[in-house]
Design a protein around this nucleic acid. Sequence first.
DNA 1: TTTGAATAGTCATATTGTTGACTATGAACG
DNA 2: CGTTCATAGTCAACAATATGACTATTCAAA
Lengths: 213, 213
Amino acid sequence: MALRHAVLAALLDGELSGYQLAKAFDVGVANFWHALPQQLYAELARLEREGLVAGRQVVQETRPTKRLFHVTDAGLAELERFAAAASKPSFIRDDLLVKVQAADHVDAGPLIRQVEERAAMAEAKIDLFRRILRKMRGDLGEEEFLREGGRVGPYLTCLRGLAFEEGNRDWCLRTAAVLRDRSAAVPGGGTASITREGTAPAPRNQEVAHAER
Amino acid sequence: MALRHAVLAALLDGELSGYQLAKAFDVGVANFWHALPQQLYAELARLEREGLVAGRQVVQETRPTKRLFHVTDAGLAELERFAAAASKPSFIRDDLLVKVQAADHVDAGPLIRQVEERAAMAEAKIDLFRRILRKMRGDLGEEEFLREGGRVGPYLTCLRGLAFEEGNRDWCLRTAAVLRDRSAAVPGGGTASITREGTAPAPRNQEVAHAER
DNA sequence: TTTGAATAGTCATATTGTTGACTATGAACG
DNA sequence: CGTTCATAGTCAACAATATGACTATTCAAA
């Protein structure tokens, strides 16, 4: 149940419509959480039923009517409660890492391409985050802003996002270089090679060496 | 459907039982994916039904009988297919970041404690990863190992895990310092202060200023 | 002038992931 | 002599996320 708190946290900086929220949680900027529009609309509806956010309708001349949401006092209290409770550890969970884990057993070509593609995506996000940070701190230096500026929360999470993407980019470039080097070194370069040359692990137990079922 | 591939990738380095797999995917080391035992047993069963892994029973004298699984040729082919397909982007999704995003609106005390706790956890993981890396490369230097060593996949994913945790630690320490400074600076230091002093955003649309429903 | 993108939002279904409890055995602690 | 830990595995129920399809309107470009 952390999406609800992510939504509350996102609404602290001012009213947003479901649509605006969806964009913030989806494309790129998802600094501290990621979710699809459907999830957000559903969560907003739940939060409103429970009185943690309130919406007000805004009729627009040029665009469809929208509803802007803000956090209520009850919502703020819920956030407070959440912030004081224990956090569950965060884990890496990434398709690309799974593929790299298997790098020695699969075709290196497509893998290298994907790792490089990811490096480029990371680079783009780095640029974006840098721009956002500059905008947030205005004409103050980073140190000043963090000492004296208003609302440092979003700035800090954006810093994490930036560092994460820098880590991503660096690792992707290094990984691509390693894989490229190695697939150039072997004769059949690029095509899966290692199949089963493992050091036979000297069974220490009485093993029933048959595949049952 | 990436858990199945994560399992396949993990089994490439040798046979494992569900239990061993569970430990690898759970406690700390979860380099490239994370999952609970129940998921893994279920996934192993599915993979076996589909012929992507095969198990063989090992009767032990001292411990309960276990089943060791290995990847079949069909499993290897499936991994190959997966590795060549497009990867979905990876996102940060972290309780703690949600809380920091709301840092300006909630009590700083518990937050600072949690951020520091997380820094310590990251530090522990860093140590663990360093040990694992040392063990994997044996007496070779990192560069040599990445050029000439066998199976660099796990080494590379572990490097990513290490960098991730270093990023975590650094960010946590910085964040803790910033929050601590700021909560020392304000008179009511530590207790939630900002409630709603936002710059009224000068409505540009004809707004129906009533909360409906 | 139709096509496509952007705004604004919704529904149903499927897949994944989490929580909590439960069965067994042998080893080690005190 | 009982308790707890580590191994080895399973079941059921639930919560969270993801996928895909859908309705509207308006603006801008091909």
